[in-house]
Design a protein around this nucleic acid. Structure first.
Length: 812
DNA sequence: AGCACGCCGACT
DNA sequence: GTCGGCGTGCTC
């Protein structure tokens, strides 16, 4: 007798061993027809049959005698009632694994809230007859030890594993499902409003609590559910009062999932549509047309700071919601402030779900489930929110699209923009990339007509952009009381504070690795082969090129002006703060950098303090360039515009231009005019000069020329392959082997930079080496890299890590 | 991770 | 001629 039965392809999560191929398992009788692709299961794996988590990707029907089914094991347990990953996300994981050279399991895991990631536990069971003293010491009076409960040291685990070999201990594995969400009491009014009124009159005079509750019930909506705790707190009632009300038949009570969303039931004043300017309206209509017609377009919305991009987003999303569709809005993590989230909640109410690092794992899971259950239709979040399990998406918006935080810097190394475009195709909906200073890649595609190009050229307050002054520090430092401040900037700070207005000072520390510069002429030592500045390595006291490996000792005399005033460069915020206190003793200064913002919420706290005028000066690193929009800021100072420029990377000018433009936009947001002072040793550099003129377009053309000359993106695609290990010799051997193999398969049009040591060659006692590939079209490259990914597994055992990074943010 | 397989040196 | 070291490969 043969009968139909099911088998399933499963992508398994084997610690330290990954493959991109699924494993086939039998679906046991009791689960037949219960399983679907996208569900999580636990399956036995390997010789020890340890249980691990896996995702079902495919289900097949077979006759139980048609093929040799003996080689398959059975699925052990189902971890979901419904698929955790839907069909779309399964396909997306497939594509992502191939595109970013990642293991599929990592792609699936990155899409889900971390609370859904399996935790494994081991149980050690004593199965011998008598405990020796050594065994007694480990087990005590128990016969069973659970790894996560009895804090077992690695030594103890080693002993236990040895005992297993002697058949004295048995080990079993379990997959812990962390899918436990808190339940809380909720209630619903079940009587008519009149009845409550009547009851309220009838209850005895001193039954104050009952009266309070009945008055509340008159106001509530009997079609809605309410959290008991919330109203108990508000009216100073206890749970007993609600329980009594239930027994009297006034309300019904039940338990609901506790959504830990801190904003869930806060009533936020609704925010209304603002009237769009002509430019805004054109952008809105163009995007909405594509929403309505299900056109999968990619749009660059290029708008100067303060031009009202956000209002366009909000109205586009509103239109999407009215059509019964959903929307994703990505913003950089740093701008996901409560104010920003409130703006969305004010417009769309409880339709909004937010996903960001400020939430606990439980809160993230709750938000994720609200999205999955269609309870939230607008998702606002940082990078990983691009995987929000929304159905029927009408628009995907990525604000500040030039930010590099949209690219994940660990496996899977996906770019949220690529994922957005993939999902846009899947849902036949437009994707909007917004920025005042688009990345060259995006802007170039708009130029070529690959993306639609929408422009907002005017500020909505009608004010012109702030006036930017460049200060040549080569001259200014000579007659200044401080090496970090020019007299001009000091005067300006002083006067601004006198007017009771606020100052933002930015210390640009991008690329903290030091460089060497001539104090007299500003010349920085460049690599003879690569036209890029050399980096000072203090460990070896040499200057190195991170592109080609060139190396030299620091010069004693400047090659341009023959001066001997050669300085090693680097400044800190603490030093500047101390100096500022000396120069302007009565100024109230807030410092914002990695040190002062390490604690959770500290970033917001500093901004709040500054916003409520508790300080005159906000001094910080790049992070102050974003997420602050305070009307009283009228002066912005950049202390050292150069450090970013001397960063040995092909994007150095682009990043500097973007940063200067962005920080300049902080000045004069409301009715007051703003001023910007930029101190620099390179007053003639185009990135600085064009930022002064607020001329993104000129910058774009100039930078594109440079990129073209040097065969950099966007003219070429790129890969970075890096190898690291504790043993430098091992790393060098591997990277050269890869380099040689690449030379064998690449065409003459492709270019290889390196192998060369990475910017900071040794980090945490690991040595890093890399190869950059620049190419236009290489037939064999993807196949080679896929193989490299698979083989990288076995090198990992020797502590050798290989990373393949498609379109890396940086080459250094 | 854990186990099998297999090639080479040291040993009964 | 055999035992066992660990480098290598595989896990449905």
């Amino acid at each position: 007798m043969s009968k139909n039965m099911q088998i399933a392809d499963v992508i398994v999560d084997v610690p330290t061993m990954q493959t991109n191929r699924p494993y086939t398992y039998l679906i046991p009788e009791q689960f037949q027809n219960d399983l679907e692709p996208g569900m999580r299961v636990s399956v036995p794996f390997g010789n020890g049959n340890r249980l691990i988590q896996g995702f079902i990707t495919k289900i097949d029907y077979v006759k139980n005698n048609d093929i040799n089914l003996e080689k398959y094991k059975e699925i052990q347990e189902i971890l979901d009632i419904e698929p955790t990953v839907n069909e779309e996300l399964l396909q997306l994981a497939d594509w992502m694994a191939k595109y970013t050279f990642a293991f599929k399991i990592k792609c699936l895991q990155v899409m889900l809230p971390s609370a859904l990631k399996a935790k494994y536990d081991r149980i050690f069971k004593f199965i011998g007859n008598d405990k020796t003293s050594a065994i007694q010491e480990i087990f005590g009076n128990d016969n069973e030890l659970v790894e996560s409960k009895h804090d077992l040291t690695p030594q103890k685990i080693q002993q236990l594993l040895n005992l297993r070999k002697k058949n004295l201990v048995e080990v079993s594995y379990i997959v812990k499902d962390k899918l436990t969400s808190k339940k809380v009491w909720a209630f619903r009014p079940i009587l008519e409003k009149d009845s409550y009124q009547e009851l309220s009159r009838k209850v005895s005079k001193n039954a104050n609590r009952q009266k309070l509750l009945l008055e509340l019930l008159q106001r509530l909506d009997s079609t809605k559910e309410y959290r008991q705790l919330e109203y108990a707190n508000k009216l100073n009632l206890s749970s007993v009062d609600f329980k009594n009300a239930e027994t009297k038949g006034w309300i019904s009570r039940f338990k609901v999932d506790e959504y830990r969303d801190p904003f869930a039931n806060i009533e936020i004043k609704r925010d209304e549509h603002k009237i769009l300017s002509k430019e805004q309206d054109e952008a809105f209509k163009s995007i909405s047309r594509d929403v309505n017609n299900h056109v999968n377009s990619v749009n660059l919305l290029q708008g100067v700071t303060g031009s009202g991009k956000t209002e366009v987003y909000l109205q586009v999303i509103d239109n999407v919601l009215k059509k019964g569709q959903t929307a994703i809005m990505l913003v950089p993590e740093i701008s996901l402030t409560p104010q920003m989230i409130n703006r969305f909640k004010a417009r769309f109410g409880s339709n909004v779900a937010t996903l960001h690092s400020g939430l606990s794992n439980g809160e993230k899971l709750d938000e994720w489930r609200r999205i999955e259950k269609n309870e939230a239709k607008v998702v606002v979040g940082a990078r990983s929110a691009i995987f929000a399990p929304l159905k029927n998406i009408g628009v995907i918006i990525i604000d500040e699209e030039h930010e590099d935080s949209y690219k994940q810097e660990e496996m899977p190394r996906y770019d949220a923009k690529d994922v957005a475009i993939w999902r846009g195709k899947y849902h036949h909906c437009p994707v909007v990339l917004g920025s005042a200073t688009p990345s060259l890649e995006t802007r170039a595609r708009a130029q070529k007509g690959v993306y639609k190009w929408l422009k907002l050229t005017k500020r909505i307050n009608g004010k012109s952009l702030p006036k930017v002054h460049i200060i040549d520090m080569k001259e200014a430092y000579k007659d200044s009381p401080s090496p970090d401040f020019s007299i001009e900037l000091l005067n300006e700070i002083y006067q601004t504070i006198q007017r009771k207005e606020q100052v933002v000072l930015m210390l640009n520390r991008r690329g903290y690795s030091s460089f060497v510069m001539c104090r007299d002429c500003g010349n920085v030592v460049n690599c003879p082969n690569c036209d890029i500045s050399l980096t000072l390595h203090m460990d070896s006291r040499t200057l190195r090129c991170h592109y080609c490996g060139f190396e030299m000792s620091p010069p004693k005399v400047c090659s341009v002006c023959k001066s001997t005033k050669i300085r090693y460069y680097g400044t800190g915020t603490q030093k500047v703060e101390a100096e500022l206190k000396k120069l302007i003793p009565n100024a109230r200064i807030l410092r914002m950098d990695v040190d002062t913002t390490r604690k959770k919420g500290a970033h917001q706290k500093i901004l709040d303090e500054f916003g409520s005028q508790k300080a005159d000066i906000l001094l910080g690193t790049q992070m102050i360039a974003k997420g602050l929009d305070f009307p009283n800021i009228t002066l912005v100072g950049v202390l050292n515009a150069d450090t970013g420029l001397n960063f040995p990377d092909f994007r150095a000018s682009e990043k500097t231009f973007q940063l200067l433009t962005q920080v300049s936009g902080r000045a004069g947001r409301a009715d007051k005019d703003g001023n910007v002072f930029i101190q620099t040793f390179n007053p003639d550099h185009y990135a600085i000069n064009l930022a002064r003129k607020h001329s993104y377009e000129e910058f774009f053309y100039h930078e594109m020329k440079m990129r073209h000359m040097l065969n950099y993106p966007p003219y070429y695609y790129s890969y970075k392959i890096s190898v690291s290990a504790k043993n430098e010799e091992q790393v060098v051997k591997r990277i050269y082997k890869i380099g040689n193999e690449l030379k064998g398969i690449l065409s003459a049009q492709a270019q290889i930079l390196g192998p060369a040591p990475q910017g900071i060659t040794r980090i945490n006692n690991r040595y890093y080496y890399q190869i950059i590939i620049k190419y236009k079209k290489e037939e064999k490259l993807e196949e080679y890299l896929s193989k490299l990914l698979v083989s990288s597994q076995k090198f990992e055992r020797n502590g050798e890590l290989i990373v393949i990074d498609r379109n890396p943010n940086r080459f250094e």
